[in-house]
């Protein structure tokens, strides 16, 4: 009798829970919100683990920050390389807002990495002051990543692809707090994010003028507060990076530094603080790696609506163009 009551309790509770969850999803979807994969240290580590799997296919670690993450598609990369008769596995390890040199050092120090490292970066991102921005990701991979975390993350990714309820900005507690603070519903993102850790900026869904204005204003505020190292000091610091690249080369791997497209005020501010001739070109002379500057390749000179990132509709063109540049450079 008691057991039957318990069964009833569990069934009724499950039905109410599922109905409540379903209603939650329907309400938010009705307002135009969608589920999305959320980035995390675990997701980064899951992909980092792929970078040291044995070839073939050739493992290609795509390092960088948002411009690589929202500018190259691993799936399109694989497809274009396949058309060229190449078997490759592009792995997105870029982290939005975090310069990547710590990740390059980590790959250089990992004897299992024998693939191609593509580093999306500009001269500012090579200043030793910002080398450690991805250090927490690397520490997580080496110290906390485990088989149980991998299973959890793979399942969580599936849930996130289908459930708005899996988005932290839609957590019940967060929504209640927003309601108390009179903040209205969560912000509608114009940035997409996929399970392969690539994403895209869909400027059709955004107030482009506001985003562009804010980005330029931030950069205008940033540069006067930041004193760039002199070219000689900067180049001296890069000698350590040269040693990392040599380590990868010695194992049969390759390294490509890629300065991704930027435009207008962003380009001019970068050039004013880190003139190409004084920094990038001098580095190219000593770095045992391919150095690709978007300005030198028409197929890479793609518009950046907010001055710093290409639009989602251009990712395909950009990725395919980049594959051909790598091929021409002998990196593929």
């Amino acid at each position: 009798m008691n057991s039957a009551r318990w069964l009833l309790v569990w069934i009724a509770a499950a039905v109410i829970t599922l109905a409540g969850w379903g209603a939650f999803e329907a309400i938010w979807r009705g307002q135009g919100y969608k589920p999305t994969v959320m980035d995390s240290f675990d997701l980064w580590s899951q992909h980092r683990a792929r970078a040291v799997k044995p070839a073939p296919p050739l493992r290609i670690a795509l390092l960088g920050a948002s411009r690589i993450q929202y500018g190259l598609s691993p799936a399109v990369f694989r497809d274009e390389a396949h058309k060229l008769g190449l078997s490759v596995d592009p792995i997105m390890l870029a982290v939005n807002g975090h310069y990547p040199l710590a990740a390059l050092r980590d790959l250089a120090n990992d004897p299992k990495f024998t693939g191609l490292a593509v580093i999306g970066i500009d001269s500012r991102g090579m200043d030793p002051k910002v080398w450690e921005m991805q250090a927490k990701h690397i520490a997580h991979y080496h110290h906390d990543w485990s088989p149980s975390r991998e299973v959890h993350r793979r399942l969580l990714t599936r849930v996130q692809e289908y459930a708005i309820a899996a988005r932290p900005d839609f957590a019940a507690a967060t929504l209640v707090k927003r309601w108390f603070d009179d903040q209205g519903p969560p912000y509608k993102e114009y940035v997409t994010f996929e399970r392969d850790r690539s994403g895209g900026t869909d400027y059709v869904k955004s107030d482009l003028a506001a985003i562009r204005g804010a980005r330029v204003a931030d950069l205008k505020k940033y540069y006067p507060l930041y004193t760039p190292p002199t070219p000689d000091t900067w180049l001296d610091g890069m000698r350590e990076v040269v040693r990392w690249v040599e380590k990868i080369n010695a194992r049969g791997g390759k390294v490509v530094f890629y300065r991704e497209p930027v435009s207008d005020e962003h380009y001019h501010l970068d050039e004013a603080n880190f003139p190409r001739a004084s920094y990038w070109d001098r580095l190219a002379a000593i770095m045992p790696a391919r150095m690709v500057d978007f300005q030198d390749y028409p197929e890479l000179n793609i518009p950046t609506p907010d001055t710093s990132h290409i639009d989602i509709k251009d990712i395909d063109r950009h990725t395919r163009g980049f594959v051909h540049v790598l091929r021409k450079q002998g990196a593929l």
Partner: peptide, 22 residues
């Protein structure tokens, strides 16, 4: 009372589902 149990259990399960994040 069993309806209370149902309510408590459903509320807890729903709250867990709607508590993603860090």
């Amino acid at each position: 009372a069993w309806p209370l149990r149902v309510l408590l259990l459903a509320l807890m399960m729903l709250a867990i589902i709607l508590a993603p994040g860090k």
